[in-house]
Design a protein around this nucleic acid. Sequence first.
DNA 1: AGGAGTTTGTGAACGGGAGAACAAACCGAG
DNA 2: CTCGGTTTGTTCTCCCGTTCACAAACTCCT
Lengths: 257, 257
Amino acid sequence: MTSPRSPRTGSPADGSHGRHGADGVGGPSVRVPERGIPEATVARLPVYLRALTGLSERGTATCSSEELAGAAGVNSAKLRKDLSYLGSYGTRGVGYDVEYLRYQIAREIGVTQDWPVVIVGIGNLGHALAKYSGFSSRGFRIVALLDADPRRQGEEVAGLGVRPFEEVDALVERHRVAIGVIATPAVAAQEVCDRLVAAGVTSILNFAPAVLSVPEGVDVRKVDLSIELQILAYHEQRKTLADVLDGTPVASGAVRS
Amino acid sequence: MTSPRSPRTGSPADGSHGRHGADGVGGPSVRVPERGIPEATVARLPVYLRALTGLSERGTATCSSEELAGAAGVNSAKLRKDLSYLGSYGTRGVGYDVEYLRYQIAREIGVTQDWPVVIVGIGNLGHALAKYSGFSSRGFRIVALLDADPRRQGEEVAGLGVRPFEEVDALVERHRVAIGVIATPAVAAQEVCDRLVAAGVTSILNFAPAVLSVPEGVDVRKVDLSIELQILAYHEQRKTLADVLDGTPVASGAVRS
DNA sequence: AGGAGTTTGTGAACGGGAGAACAAACCGAG
DNA sequence: CTCGGTTTGTTCTCCCGTTCACAAACTCCT
Ligand SMILES: NC(=O)c1ccc[n+]([C@@H]2O[C@H](COP(=O)([O-])OP(=O)(O)OC[C@H]3O[C@@H](n4cnc5c(N)ncnc54)[C@H](O)[C@@H]3O)[C@@H](O)[C@H]2O)c1
Ligand SMILES: NC(=O)c1ccc[n+]([C@@H]2O[C@H](COP(=O)([O-])OP(=O)(O)OC[C@H]3O[C@@H](n4cnc5c(N)ncnc54)[C@H](O)[C@@H]3O)[C@@H](O)[C@H]2O)c1
């Protein structure tokens, strides 16, 4: 069932985004910005953006790195270093202009204009995602809801009809969709992923507990709520074990058969 | 509104789990295992667990690090190093016993018995979480659904009634709840978090787009779907910008005012 | 104008994780 | 019992990310 029929490049679907090479040793004559922002910084920019939006709504015109770092929940030195990758947008002795910095980060992330998004699998989670109003205010517009189950199709969710999954090619092309969300059961995830990629989607957010293989050039991010809970459980167990202070009778031996 | 009344220790709510010290230089006489598993490894253990469950269901008795790494989507060297933190559970020249390793990882994570969990905020997302059947098979049991809105209360979701948030203390105590899930709007998240912690919860999974401050000893993990999409958007933008091959007219200057 | 105070941007040290590579250990055949 | 093939566990090296610390740059007050 899971035997790989089509030879896909088993990309990690993790941090390593297959950089498009071009790190040639050749001459730096053309003055390409070539600003490779570290992945860890990219992951924090949206947090800064949210914090700046909050400050802006509260009427704050400027803020120091200390303030912004506090609102974002990070170290101020880390914040400054992160922002320095975008350029020198602050003023020494003063701080950052909230609106100006907010726009610069939004532009850097690419959310100054909306990204069309399709959601596949309109079950429990798909419904919640479709109804969520927060996406539209953060640079995303859900343009299609797809499901393979005929009983789901036709239903209206958040002003959008659930369409048959077969229409994926037409819809992706019509709306120029680059980002797809997978909220189907795990067994269907790889198949859905392949179809999305074939239709032209090059970025995927996967909620199904499954490892996706995608060709190079396609980014995958996964959100696994069970894993998050299990990480919490691990630390929780260590807390309570620390209370017992010894536990683990011998912890070795391990007889096995 | 967001002014910190009670002086909380603004903990990062990120990787740094305030280790309970005790890394004394003193005599190692009591033979404490003291196995500090790296955070990155802890985050991958649930993935291995899921992969092993899959292999087990498919009837596989043993597997090599290569196979398991493939199923988990990681490098085999990384997998072996991760597993070595738990102990030597493999057999050289043979591989790993699937059932045995599965149990060992489950025990290490702490999901050999169920963890009781409360969900706060039974809106779009809270409903989806409450109805999700995957948690129970992965070591978690949802014991209470809480909401502040009287119109939500009394509703039955997945065989569990939605209770008033005021009952949080009684429910947490009665079920010995250590893990709480926050699915309320962002403005309510800190307040809900404080109440949960006061009730005795020491691990929190936060879906609201807000930075939570918690006292030391409490772990917070956040899941922010907008951030995931924005990270994808950033890379997507760079892909299309790479196609244009130059873009960014001058990219410097930045006149401001 | 000059100086004190403030805050940014960045160089440098440091720590942790990723990956390659290899010795040790195990199995099975002969 | 020995030997070749296989796979683990671990060591070593490199790289990325975090954090400290400070010079440069700006404002404001005198
Ligand atoms: N609901 C949650 O809170 C939650 C939590 C963690 C993980 N997940 C994961 O998210 C995914 C969705 O969860 P859910 O609770 O919404 O499940 P669900 O069963 O309620 O919904 C799945 C939907 O996908 C559709 N579907 C199935 N196969 C399809 C295909 N090949 N193409 C298109 N659509 C298809 C189904 O018709 C259904 O509507 C699952 O993988 C689940 O493990 C969900
Ligand atoms: N729905 C999604 O797909 C999605 C996606 C990303 C992020 N989020 C975030 O998850 C959170 C929940 O989203 P949602 O769509 O379910 O929102 P929602 O408005 O549908 O549900 C929120 C629920 O929380 C309850 N609530 C409000 N204040 C409360 C309080 N003080 N105590 C207890 N309960 C309280 C409300 O009564 C409501 O039932 C939000 O913070 C949202 O930003 C949701």
